[in-house]
Each structure stands twice: as C-alpha cells, then as structure tokens.
Write a protein that binds this DNA or RNA. Structure first.
Lengths: 129, 129
DNA sequence: GTAATACTTCAATAGATGTTGAATAGTATG
DNA sequence: CATACTATTCAACATCTATTGAAGTATTAC
C-alpha cells in the first residue's frame, strides 16, 4: 500500500468526500475550479438563495478547499476561489487511491477456496489436505 | 469545461462522494482496492460488527463500486471485490475534475474590480467610465 | 447622519443515515 | 431431520445536516 494511503489520510479523504457529497456544494466547487467568482454570480448560475450559498461556501472554506477575499474597489463584494495547494494535494492523492493498477488478483484468498479456514476463535489456520 | 463535467456527471460524482464519505466505508473500500476479501477477514481487520459491515458493503454495491460472489468450495463464504470498470471510470473522472490546470485566472471578474456592476434586477451591465 | 447593497449568521425544522441488537436467510455438516 | 456457521435483513434510535426565513454585519452611496 502506498505511503499516501494510511489511516490518517483515509480519515482526511472521508472528510473531503463528505464536503463534496452535497450536490449543490459540488456544483459550487466545480464553478470555482474554473476561476474566481463572487457570491452574486453564483446565485444566478445556481439558483440557490444567498444564505444557503454562504453556508456551503463556509463548509468548503473550513475544509481548506476554498478561500475568499473582498473586492478592492467595492468591499461589499467577495470573491471566492479554490485553494490551489489543496487541489494539487487531492489531485495526487485521488490519482493514487483510485489507480486501477492497485486492484490485483490475490494469490491467497481468506476462505476455503484459497485453502484457508477459520476457527470460532478468529484464528486463521492452514487447512489440512 | 470538459465534456466529462456536466450536471449529470456532477450529480453522479456527488453520489459517489457520499458513499465514500463515511470513514468505515472508505476503509472497507480501501481494503477491497488491494484485492478480493471475504466478510470475515474484514471483520477482523476493521473491528466492525458483521451486520454493520454488511450494511456498508451493500451501499458500496448499490453504488456500483463493489460486487460479490460466493466461495466455490463453501457457499457460506462470500468474497467482495471492487468493480474494475467503475474504478477506471472514476479514476479518469477525478483526474479531470481535480486537475490543477483547470484553475485559471479570470480576465473578467464579475464585480466592480473587473469593471462589472449589477442592477437589482439581476441584469449584468458594463460599468460606464 | 440614513438608506441601500452584498453577504453572513442565527434559529428552527424535516429528512437522511450510521450504529446497535435481535431476528432471519442461506449453506454446510452429521 | 437437526445443528452449526456465514452473512444479511429488520427495527429502533440518536445524531447529523441541508434547507428555509428572519435577523445581523460590513461596506458603500446619497
């Protein structure tokens, strides 16, 4: 198993998956992947009320996927953008995690088919032949 | 935007993220990525009760990520494995979706900074100078 | 100052879901 | 047949969360 895939990484990945598991939130994130966008523009693109949009953006921000800044001309406007470092990290991680090359045929199955059996005490032994 | 990333694909991806957003379920999936495994073996590896394991495996199966078969020698045993076609599909999709190259600087921001303003009727106009 | 605009936070609710324990199904053995 | 073993399904619960509407914050315009 790759060094990238340990228990901690799995836990972190589960958290990211959870953040992106909401359809609206994933649509928001997808828009941000194509460049900076202000809240108002997304309201129009997504047909989502502003307060709900804010909620989802906060979740994305707290997950480290997104950051925000105020407009330099008119401070009432706020731009959101993806965190490039985080994107690069998850791009690499997901490429490794979902690599089809990881899926190998096992030479030793855990059950009778593989010559293994199990006692009720959860101790694996080699089946006698 | 890539042809791979349309509303339908986003909806499907959100569903997959949801399936993998549970820590235990992601650990199960990760084990299966390394090869076929029976229910009993995972019970030992994960310290999860058998019925809960079955529940998570069903969710993974219904999502098309995992399939199962019975042991040829002893039909009481069941092996689980990842669906290679699904893995390949999501491997490709995620590589595209999280591609850092997607994140570009926008030449036209939607707010005042980018020379844009907005009327209360949600109609975008070019700001006069 | 007041008013308007862009956005966020708060409070409440309804629906979804992970977990647990008990009951059930399917298969093998004697 | 009965018994044991592997795994699934059922029922109940507790927790979490997306959504909604109202109130609040920050900034700009007049």
């Amino acid at each position: 198993m790759s060094i990238l895939i340990d228990e901690t990484a799995l836990s972190d990945a589960a958290a990211i998956f959870k953040v992106l598991s909401d359809p609206n939130r994933l649509r928001i994130f997808n828009i941000l992947m194509d460049g900076d966008t202000c809240n108002c523009e997304m309201t129009d693109m997504l047909d989502i009320p502003a307060n709900l949009l804010s909620h989802h953006l906060r979740v994305l921000r707290q997950a480290g996927l997104v950051s925000s800044r105020r407009d330099a001309v008119d401070g009432r406007w706020i731009y959101y953008s993806v965190n490039k470092a985080a994107i690069a990290h998850w791009h690499t991680w997901l490429k490794t995690f979902f690599d089809p090359e990881r899926v190998k045929e096992r030479n030793n199955l855990c059950g009778p088919e593989g010559g293994q059996t199990r006692m009720t005490t959860s101790i694996f032994i080699t089946q006698e032949q």
